[in-house]
Amino acid sequence: MSKVLETTLEIDLKALTHNFNYLKSKLRPTTKFLGVVKAFAYGSDAVEVAKHLQHLGADYLAVAYVKEGVALRDAGVTLPILVLHPQPVNFKTLIDRCLEPSLYSFKVLNEFIEISKNLNQSNYPVHIKINTGLNRLGFTADDIEAVSDKAKTNESIKIKSVFSHLAASEDLNESEFTLNQISQFKLIAKNFSELLGYQPWLHICNTSGVLNYPEAHLDMVRCGISLYGFGNNPKYDQYLKPIASLKSVISQIHLIKKGESIGYNRALVAENDMKTATIPIGHADGLSRIYGKGKGFVFINDQKAPIAGNVCMDMIMVDITHINCDEGDEVIVFDNNHTANDLAASTGTISYEILTAISNRVKRCYIK
C-alpha cells in the first residue's frame, strides 16, 4: 500500500484468505465453518469480510444482533446467518430477512414460536444455546425435555443446531474445566437428539477450541478472532496474519521547553526540553484515554513513540524527542509487525478490545 495521508484502517483480504485456509486445514472435510463477523467484523468491515468469506466457501456467518444481520442482507450477503443474541422485539425483522436466531431461554423460545406462528412459518431454522459453564446465556440440562416438547409440538420451528460456548479454551491450565464442558455438552446433546427424534448439528468450538481441542470440532466450528489474525497464544499467532493495520500521519511537530505542559489537564509537564508530534487519532476513533500518559505508544520510522499526556477526543501527542521524523510522516498504531496484542498488553487488556473499538469514522481501505 502507498503511504497513508490520513488516519486509515487497512484491511488485508489476502491475510483473511490465509487465516481461513489455515483454520480449515485443522478441520475434517465434513466439519462446517462458521465465520463470526459481529462487531463490524471485529472492528474491520463486516460487509467486506462477510462477502470475502462467502467467496472463500464459508458455510455460515454469525452476528450478535439482528441489526448486524440486516446490514449484511442489505449488502447482498446470502449465506445463512446465525444471530447469537437476538431480542424478541426484532424477531419479525429477523424472519423477514431470513436470519436464524439463537434461542437461549424459555422467554425467547416462547416469543419466537408465537411470532413465527403469526407469520405462518413452517420449520423455521432455530439454534438452541446450551449453558455448560460460561453462565452467560443458555438452557440447562434440566430444561432439555421441556424445550424438545415445545419444538415437537410447534411446526413453525425446526431446530437446526444445538450449541454451547467454551469459557476458557485458550487457557490450557483450565483444560479439565474445558474437557468437562465438552463432555457435558455431548451428553446433553445426545439426550436432546433422542427426545427430538432427529439429529441437529452440534457445535461448541470457538477459535481456541478449534486449535486446542480437535476432538470437539463436531459438525461445525465458530471462528472469530483467528480470522482476524490472532490465536490467543503465541504458538498459533505465528501461523496467522493480522488483517487490520491502523495507520495515521504526523499533523504537527512541537518543541516543548522544560516546565511546559502538554494537553488537557496538563497531564504531562516536561522535565527537560522535548519534541512532540500531534497525530489525528483519539478516543473518538477508538484509542481509549487509558492509553494516555505513556501507557500507549505508536511507531514512527520503526521507533516507539510513547503517548504524551492524555488522549484527546480527536488527537494524541507523542514523544518524538529521539526520533528523526517530519510532519506528514506515517504513524503505525498497529500492523503485522507491531500488533494489537502489543498495544493491548500495555494496559492489561486484549486484542479484541483494541480491534472492536475502532470507530466507523476511521477511513477503511482494502488490500485485495
Rank of each mutant, 00 (worst) to 15 (best):
V4G: 02
E6M: 11
E6I: 03
T7A: 02
E10S: 08
D12A: 09
L13V: 05
K14M: 05
H18W: 13
N21V: 03
V37A: 12
K38W: 08
A39Y: 05
F40G: 01
S44H: 14
V47G: 10
K51Y: 09
A58D: 00
D59F: 09
L61C: 12
A62I: 10
K67G: 06
I81K: 12
H85T: 01
H85R: 15
P86A: 07
K92R: 13
K92E: 08
L94M: 14
D96S: 10
C98S: 15
L99P: 02
L99K: 01
P101F: 09
S102Q: 09
S102R: 04
S105W: 11
K107H: 08
E111A: 05
I113W: 04
E114F: 05
K117N: 15
K117Y: 04
N118Q: 14
Q121P: 10
N123I: 00
Y124Q: 08
Y124F: 13
T140S: 15
A141S: 15
D142F: 04
D143V: 01
V147T: 06
S148G: 03
D149A: 12
K150L: 14
K152G: 04
S156Q: 07
S156P: 02
I157M: 03
F163M: 15
L172D: 06
E174M: 09
E176G: 01
E176N: 09
T178E: 03
F185M: 07
K190V: 03
S193Q: 15
S193G: 07
Y198T: 00
Y198K: 12
Q199W: 01
W201E: 15
L202H: 13
G209Y: 05
L211R: 09
E215T: 12
A216N: 02
H217G: 03
H217R: 04
M220G: 02
M220D: 06
G224E: 10
S226K: 09
L227M: 11
Y228R: 13
G231Y: 06
G231R: 03
Y236V: 00
Y239E: 15
P242A: 01
I243Q: 08
A244Q: 14
S251C: 11
H254K: 07
I256K: 11
E260W: 03
I262Y: 10
I262A: 08
G263E: 04
L268Q: 04
V269T: 14
K275S: 05
T276R: 13
P280S: 11
G282Q: 10
H283S: 08
D285G: 09
G286I: 13
L287M: 05
R289T: 11
I290F: 12
Y291D: 02
K295H: 14
I300G: 03
K304M: 15
A305V: 11
I307A: 12
G309N: 02
C312R: 13
D314L: 03
I316F: 14
I316N: 11
E327C: 08
G328V: 05
G328A: 10
N341V: 07
N341Y: 07
D342V: 04
L343H: 08
A344K: 08
A344Y: 06
S346L: 08
A357P: 02
R361F: 02
R364E: 00
C365S: 15
C365M: 14
Y366W: 11
